[in-house]
């Protein structure tokens, strides 16, 4: 089951399945460690949301976060 990232709730952990959108933005996220196959934890939902990705904290806007499809990890 895939969800857009902005539907995740606080504290939930997920694996990134797919990131769509402008190639420049996809590349930029990859540079920051956010890429297909990586794990993330939602620290604070909403817009902007706060994520924990590979030991670092990133913030994204809600509209951008919905371009990231994730698979929740229980």
């Amino acid at each position: 089951m895939l969800f857009p990232l902005d539907m995740m709730r606080s504290g939930e952990v997920a694996e990134v399945a797919e990131i769509s959108g402008d190639p420049g933005w996809v590349g930029r996220l990859a540079e920051l460690g956010l890429r297909a196959g990586c794990r993330l934890k939602v620290l604070q939902p909403g817009s902007p949301c706060l994520l924990e990705v590979a030991d670092c904290k990133l913030c994204l806007r809600g509209g951008d976060a919905c371009q990231i499809l994730v698979r929740p990890v229980s």
Partner: peptide, 11 residues
């Protein structure tokens, strides 16, 4: 222009 995609690291 397109709304820049906003992504920021919190060090």
């Amino acid at each position: 222009g397109e709304t820049p995609l906003f992504v920021m690291e919190l060090p």
